[in-house]
């Protein structure tokens, strides 16, 4: 205790003040001086005991923190009493719980990363192998021109897919690493949707699907235009792929004082109850996935939206259709 500087100063000053007082009282009256002396000694003893007790508590807390630093998260020091010390214990406990949780998340992340790498390798390997085969075949000089063109087209489409995969993975890893600065602009939803639809109108026309857009043209959200576009267009793309020819795709948006909501819906094949909890997981492929599907589009949408403090939700009925609800909160930014 005495190694703490403030305590040394405290005791020395108390001692000096009381000593001077005591001498003064002694000079005035001897009995009063004796009483004062006893009171003086008692005060010193009591303050030593209290200070010792308090330092003991602090020492206990620091021992406890050492145990946490050693990875032992299960010790509970909360005593549910009134007062600052108890509040401190409580706050330390809350920080411990958060740390523990983060440690668990890290562990999970490691496993996830290992799985993801094996998934990615697989995704890369399949087209590469098939391209090898086709290149070997192209080497054959007797190959008819017709076949040659077919192989070339095939190789080109495989390369496009590879390129898309690699670009998407790069974007995802950037978001994951927090390396993306999401802008906080006011975005007109209508403009956002028009931009998101840019590359999708043709596939929609090929499938002869109708598109409806409902909402007030002045509705806005606060976020990053390009990234949010990417998120929205991945979802619409998913809707187009899983809706039959002649089906309907719809986008509806509105704004409340707390958030802006965009609903993207279709009357397509729907998502089964079994798949529904996992569709935003990276590399997850539902039973009815497109054969070229990688399982990265929806995962990316979710990452983009959640990185901007928004939420994404899905409701689906097999055979009836699917609704994706995107919410962007105002107070978050």
């Amino acid at each position: 205790m005495m190694r703490n500087k403030e305590i040394r100063i405290y005791f020395i000053s108390i001692f000096l003040i009381l000593l001077v007082g005591n001498v003064a009282v002694f000079l005035l009256n001897k009995t009063a001086g004796m009483i004062f002396l006893i009171a003086f000694l008692l005060t010193v003893v009591i303050s030593i005991i209290f200070t010792l007790w308090r330092y003991r508590q602090i020492a206990l807390l620091s021992q406890y923190l050492q145990r946490i630093a050693g990875g032992e998260y299960s010790v509970d020091i909360r005593d549910n009493a009134e007062g600052e010390l108890s509040i401190l214990k409580n706050e330390i406990y809350k920080v411990t719980v958060t740390l523990n949780e983060q440690a668990n998340l890290l562990k999970k992340d490691k496993i996830f990363l290992a799985n993801a790498i094996s998934d990615i390798s697989h995704q890369l390997k399949t087209p590469v192998t098939s391209m090898y085969v086709m290149v070997d075949l192209l080497n054959n000089e007797d190959l008819p021109d017709e076949k040659r063109n077919e192989f070339l087209r095939n190789i080109r489409s495989q390369l496009e897919r590879l390129q898309w995969l690699v670009t998407s993975l790069l974007k995802l890893s950037k978001i994951d690493a927090g390396a993306v600065e999401f802008k906080k602009d006011r975005i007109k939803i209508r403009e956002l949707i028009d931009k998101s639809l840019e590359h999708l109108l043709i596939p929609m026309e090929i499938k002869n699907q109708t598109l409806e857009i409902l909402g007030d043209g002045n509705t806005e959200l606060i976020g990053d235009f390009n990234w949010t576009c990417e998120a929205v267009s991945n979802i619409i793309k998913n809707c187009i792929e899983h809706t039959q020819n002649g089906g309907k795709i719809g986008i509806e948006f509105s704004e409340t004082s707390l958030y802006t909501i965009i609903n993207i819906y279709d009357n397509g094949e729907g998502i089964s109850k079994k798949d529904l909890p996992y569709i935003f997981n990276r590399f997850y492929k539902a039973a009815n996935s497109h054969k070229d599907s990688i399982g990265i589009g929806l995962a990316m949408s979710k990452s983009i939206i959640e990185s901007q403090g928004g939420t994404i939700d899905v409701k689906s009925e097999v055979g009836e259709g699917t609704v994706f609800s995107l919410k962007f909160y105002k107070g978050v930014l």
């Binding site: 409340t256 707390l258 958030y259 403090g309 909160y329 978050v332």
Partner: peptide, 19 residues
Amino acid sequence: SKNSSEIISLLKMFNKTLN
């Protein structure tokens, strides 16, 4: 119903962002 969905959205947002 409008206020209900706002309240639930907020609860859900806190659930997600603050775990």
